[in-house]
Design a binder for these strands. Structure first.
Lengths: 344, 344
DNA sequence: CTGTTAGCGCGTTCAA
DNA sequence: TTGAACGCGCTAACAG
């Protein structure tokens, strides 16, 4: 079907307005507006005339005056660090689907894990008067918090929990992840822990939780290696190599993402280490590939799609006037799950 | 730093307008507008007064009236099939960076490889009068083409080449990929080819190109297996299993993505097949992980970041009035590269 | 079911 | 360097 020659039809009248359509249809502008937005309020005959006139004039809807007049933009902003991390890509996909279904469009802002970027993005985004905002994390600049608290649209913070959300919250406790991992790995007999983490605030929280939990058992993390975001297999290999160089006797490397973990495994295997006997490795995210590495990767499963869908859902519920009693709670713990597959 | 208690400051006056700020600063609204958008046209003293008034009133910019009045939205729409495929995620990231730098915001639409969804998305997106549009592929509905041809904003089609672009084009030839792969694999001595492909129009084009090139040598593809999008490792395994069940003697499986290829490799290895001697496998995309599979995956490298950056760049150049002579060409071939690593 | 009136709050254009 | 007048095109509110 492709390539295709240029279509014969010539450009229609661009920028036809409602009045143009109205004139062509022999009705008033407001009737055209109704025909387009609330067709059930218009008599079928009139509707047909108007539809013909729309085609004839090549009319394309124009939301700018509508937004100006009504202050409803049908826009929802999603602000996240990056879309290169598959857990965020999943979130975007799920949020986009839900929002599109509900008649909203997605304004995307990527903040690269930097609070100051987020601040700028929020300010820019607010200039479009979005009907709702989805943020990543609960760590924002004071300006951002103040600005967001002063407005009355639904806001969802995601991927985290906090006692002081700006508005709504969909996520899980990163400290709790650390606790759970510590408890389980101690049970399995590991004592010499290393951390391989990307430079990401939520990952740090998980590892602080881990260290605290280990500390309560009198155990210290032997070594920590921090790599820049976004993580890659290469960074995982290199990080693992540094850890092993400094501390050849570590038993377990806990990684802040599956990608780092897979890179670390590659390094370990290439050195002839047996996994998990010589070196155990734990990932985070539990991405699709975790079940398909050699050996299959143990990982903490979190669900980006779920977070995206729930966040979008929370916003749409508010906007469509679902009564508070029937809405999802303002704080939703999406949970996580430690999955063991053979690398620990 | 987190959790954080609620900030003490109370909500400022929401929806303060330029006039409110003007009153507080003792100037006219238009001067405030200038102070915000073209500060160099305002005397420093006045500027300072206005900045104070902005803080005092909690003024937040409002683009709606501006858009209504001027028909420039500072919005660029990016329409693609999905963001779950990392090559598209790379593209989004790169495009977003470029556009943000140039002062534009990103409106994201996901069309799931379906032309009718794209048609709806384009129509919806046009209602916001974006300053530019980036599309994926060159295959659109007649309505979409007609609509887009009738408007005068910069439009870039991506990930493909065609003699009849709507406006600008950034991509590579999928038929050419097929040709190149065929030529090289024939040279290496493979004769019994199988195809494992996701249900995606550009992938199909590549495989048609492959089949045509093989046909010219009197060789037929032994078997084809089509899986739904989005691809996954699991689908790759299953597809490979089906191919081997039907035709145990195939020598080479050419996959429409690295993900499928890796899944296929997993299946082959689990059956005790040696790669590439018993079965060779070729991927597409050359994602980061391709170099880190066992054996490392041969793949056709394409660069999503490059495509995203060039597409955004082309739009910005037009919008910022770079003279045609200094602009990038309307059609840019981003090329591809066959990388052999050990799986072929 | 359809029409009339009025106003949303900016930026553009021109004048001072 | 600053200001005044105007209009962008739609929809809310009310009337018929």
């Amino acid at each position: 079907m492709d390539p295709v020659p240029p279509l014969p039809d010539q450009p229609r009248i661009t920028n036809a307005t409602l009045s143009d359509v109205a004139r062509a249809a022999g009705v008033s502008a407001i009737t055209v507006s109704r025909a387009l937005n609330q067709p059930h309020l218009v008599r079928p005959g009139t509707l047909a005339k108007i539809q013909a006139a729309v085609r004839e004039t090549g009319y394309a809807k124009n939301r700018a005056p509508a937004e100006h007049g009504t202050d409803r933009s049908k826009l929802v902003a999603l602000i996240l660090p990056t879309v290169a991390n598959p857990i965020f890509a999943d979130m975007v996909q799920a949020a986009s689907d839900k929002l599109t279904d509900a008649g909203y469009q997605l304004l995307l802002g990527l903040a690269s894990y930097e609070v100051w970027r987020e601040e700028i993005l929020v300010e820019t985004v607010l200039s479009r008067r979005p009907d709702g905002i989805i943020l990543t994390g609960t760590l924002h600049s004071d300006n951002t918090r103040r600005r967001l608290q002063s407005i009355s649209i639904p806001i969802v913070e995601t991927w985290d929990l906090t006692p002081f959300p700006i508005d709504m919250l969909v996520g899980f406790s990163h400290e709790e992840v650390g606790n759970t991992v510590a408890a389980r790995m101690l049970t399995k007999g590991y004592r010499r822990f290393a951390i391989l983490t990307a430079d990401d605030p939520r990952a740090s929280r998980r590892h602080l939780g881990l260290q605290a939990a280990l500390g309560r058992q009198g155990i210290e993390v032997v070594a920590t290696d921090v790599v820049p975001t976004p993580a890659s297999l290469q960074l995982g290999r290199e990080g693992c190599a540094r850890l092993l160089a400094r501390h050849p006797d570590i038993e377990l490397v806990i990684c802040s993402s599956d990608t780092l973990a897979q890179g670390a495994m590659t390094e370990a295997v290439s050195r002839g280490l047996r996994i998990p006997d010589d070196l155990a490795i734990l990932g985070f995210g539990d991405l699709n590939f975790a079940a398909h590495t050699y050996p299959p990767l143990s990982s903490v499963r979190v669900d980006g799609s779920l977070i995206g869908a729930l966040a979008a859902h929370a916003i749409v519920e508010r906007l469509t006037g679902v009564p508070p009693a029937k809405r999802m709670p303002a704080v939703t713990d999406t949970g996580f799950q430690l999955i063991e597959r053979g690398s620990t």
